[in-house]
Simulated scan of single mutants.
Amino acid sequence: MSYILVPVIVVLMGMVVYSLVRGIIAFLKSTRDDLDRGDAPGASEMQLLQNKMMFNRIKYQAAAVLVVVLLLAIAKS
């Protein structure tokens, strides 16, 4: 079972890094867009993408933690 869960953890960690990088890029672009945009109301497209990527990062991290808990439970028994 651990032979299956270890690659799953690696994939989830890769997805965490991908979401983090995309979120940071969206953050940098939204900062630049906010300066150009002025006082326009509402969230910009980049801000919405940033929120989505950071939420995805949290989901993938939680899934990775659950897989680690499963691995530890398997190793204990």
Rank of each mutant, 00 (worst) to 15 (best):
Leu72His: 08
Val67Gly: 01
Lys52Glu: 04
Asp33Val: 11
Leu72Trp: 10
Val8Pro: 08
Asn56Gln: 04
Met53Thr: 00
Ile25Glu: 04
Leu5Ala: 11
Lys59Leu: 11
Met15Pro: 05
Leu49Glu: 02
Met15Asn: 12
Leu66Ser: 10
Ser2Gly: 15
Gly14Leu: 13
Lys52Val: 02
Ala73Pro: 04
Ile24Thr: 07
Ala40Ser: 02
Glu45Ala: 08
Val10His: 15
Val67Ile: 06
Val21Phe: 12
Ala73Glu: 09
Leu20Thr: 15
Met15Ala: 15
Tyr60Trp: 09
Ile9Ala: 14
Ile25Trp: 03
Val11Gly: 11
Val8Asn: 11
Ser44Val: 02
Lys52Met: 05
Ala64Lys: 04
Lys59Glu: 07
Gln61Met: 12
Gln47Thr: 06
Leu66Cys: 10
Leu5Trp: 10
Arg37Gly: 01
Leu20Tyr: 14
Lys52Gln: 05
Leu48His: 08
Leu49Asn: 01
Gln50Gly: 00
Gly14Lys: 07
Gly38Asp: 04
Leu35Phe: 06
Asn56Arg: 01
Lys52Asp: 02
Met53Asp: 00
Ala40Pro: 00
Phe55Ser: 06
Met53Pro: 00
Thr31Cys: 09
Tyr60Asp: 02
Lys76Gly: 10
Leu72Asp: 09
Met46Lys: 05
Val11His: 12
Asn51Tyr: 03
Met46Leu: 08
Gly42Phe: 00
Leu5Arg: 13
Asp33Thr: 09
Val68Gln: 09
Met15Thr: 10
Val65Phe: 10
Met15Gln: 13
Lys76Phe: 11
